[in-house]
Simulated scan of single mutants.
Amino acid sequence: MQWSSLAGARLLLEPFDGWGRSIPLDPAVWQERLYPLIRGIKNGEHDGGRTLTEIATELRIAADLFEEYPDGSADALRRIPCAVDASRTPQVLREIAEHLEGWRHDRHTWLTTPLTTEELRLRFPRFDQILPIFWGQDGVAISDDMQGATTEDGIRMYIDETHPYCPWELPSVVAECYQAVALFHDEEQMDRFFCREAMTGGSGTEDLVDFFPLFAQRCIEHLRTEHHPLWEPTKR
């Protein structure tokens, strides 16, 4: 089984991954910790993202693999955390799977549980790659070869590297630009999220509050000038 086969399970269990961390045995503890991520995944289902049922299936597969490879040596189990008591990992993973399959939210908990960095990060899968690679530390858009280049030059570089796959890539980038503008209302929030807590991104010489609308606009302009029309009605 390939490593990517359990990507959804790995995403959900990320809060318990890392040195010195593991999945608590007490369901009340892991349910509270996972609630924002579960809510974010559930919300993303409406946009065609992974479903809770799909992730539950992956967790059951992981549980079976842990029974076969108790030391977690199977390639597909990399970055899948164990339970505090490693011998109970299959049981705990199946408990989480069952929790996902029967998950129902109540309005009060949904509205009063704060948004977390992990949950919001689910909304920016493309920025998670683009911002660090192009505008993060040592990013290609701010490298020595780009000295003197403007932020718009960096945006053009990204669009040029995306071309000719722009119709499949750029609309989602535009959507993430406007999600950022809608969710984060000032430069301090944007900088803390996109450049520190959630990802190691950047925005060149522009403030993020100006960068995102500019990025979106240049993507839209490119699609209109280089890929028009993107769609035509079926002739009847």
Rank of each mutant, 00 (worst) to 15 (best):
D128E: 14
L170F: 01
D85Q: 14
R33D: 13
R126G: 00
F193T: 06
T162N: 07
P114W: 08
T200L: 15
V174Y: 04
G148S: 08
F215Q: 04
Q129T: 11
L93S: 03
A9V: 04
T205F: 06
L77H: 02
H105L: 11
I133H: 11
E152T: 08
H105P: 04
D144P: 00
G154H: 08
L122G: 01
D145E: 14
L214W: 03
E206P: 00
L77M: 03
S73L: 06
D85V: 12
R78H: 05
M1C: 07
F211R: 10
I159P: 04
A9T: 01
G48D: 09
L37P: 04
E98H: 13
V174T: 10
L111R: 15
Q129G: 00
I130Q: 08
L115Y: 14
R50G: 00
E32N: 11
D153Q: 06
D207V: 07
E58D: 08
I220T: 07
S5K: 13
D207R: 15
I96A: 05
A62P: 02
G202S: 09
T151M: 04
R156C: 01
C195E: 10
D191N: 10
L115A: 15
G44E: 15
A56S: 14
W103K: 12
H108T: 15
A28F: 02
I130L: 15
H227L: 07
R123N: 12
P81M: 01
H185Q: 09
Q147Y: 08
P125A: 01
Q2F: 06
E188R: 12
L52T: 10
A9P: 02
K235P: 00
T225L: 11
P90S: 07
D128A: 13
G202T: 09
G20T: 12
E58N: 06
D75P: 01
F184V: 04
Y158C: 05
F16I: 04
V92C: 04
Q91P: 03
S87L: 11
I133P: 00
E176R: 01
E58R: 08
R33S: 11
F193S: 07
L77A: 02
I41N: 05
E197C: 02
Q147A: 13
S172A: 13
L12H: 04
